[in-house]
């Protein structure tokens, strides 16, 4: 995840100070790991060194005086270049779920019990996300983050069902 590009993206709206950037990052990307303030500060310094942001002044609300940063022309061009690129789809996904299914077959001869327990845990998590999504006042960011997590958990569940059917089929073939 490119924190520099995320901060630049947030600065395209208007000049902001570091604490504001951290807060907006955490609020708008609710599924993401919250940013540490030190990380924001270090990134802003790097962006400033590279000429992508500049100090536009200071602001004081209730706490200490804070440095306000604005995006430069070069910074704006960099964000749009980044948005024009794509994330590389992972060529091969190694998952702990996959490892457990294989090892359950190796060590216990069946993955059925594990798959059913894992299904229950996945569905429980999906229920929590669905409840959160359905609650009044969920922000767009929260809805998108919940949808993203739900689709990924759903993909795991569908893979688990396919795995169970494949194992069944192979077992039948071997026994036949």
């Amino acid at each position: 995840m490119s924190i520099g590009h995320i901060l630049l993206g947030l600065l395209t709206e208007r000049p902001k100070h570091g604490y504001e950037l951290k807060r907006e990052h955490d609020e708008r990307l609710p599924g993401a790991k919250p940013l540490a303030y030190g990380q924001v500060y270090a990134t802003l310094q790097r962006l400033q060194r590279d000429g992508k942001v500049a100090i536009s002044g200071t602001a004081q609300e209730s706490g200490p005086e804070r440095t306000v940063y604005e995006i430069t022309g070069e910074g704006t061009a960099d964000v749009h270049r980044w948005l024009a690129e794509i994330e590389q789809p992972a060529p091969f996904i190694s998952s702990p779920l996959f490892a457990r299914v294989v090892l359950a077959l190796v060590a216990e001869g069946s993955a059925d019990g594990y798959l059913l327990r894992q299904r229950s845990a996945h569905l429980e998590r999906m229920r929590e996300l669905t409840a959160r999504k359905s609650s009044a006042g969920a922000s767009v960011g929260e809805l998108l983050a919940a949808d993203y997590a739900l689709h990924h958990l759903d993909a795991d569940l569908r893979w688990m069902e396919t795995a169970r059917q494949r194992i069944d089929e192979l077992t039948r073939e071997i026994r036949a």
Binding site: L116, R119, S120, H122, L123, E124, M126, R127, L129, T130, S134, L150, H151, L153, D154, L157, R158
Partner: peptide, 26 residues
Amino acid sequence: HDNRVAAYADREIVLRDGVTAGEVMA
């Protein structure tokens, strides 16, 4: 057959080959 629909329910009854394979409580 949609897990995202099942996530709206309090409980899931999983069927396999005409019998229950398990129940998943909320």
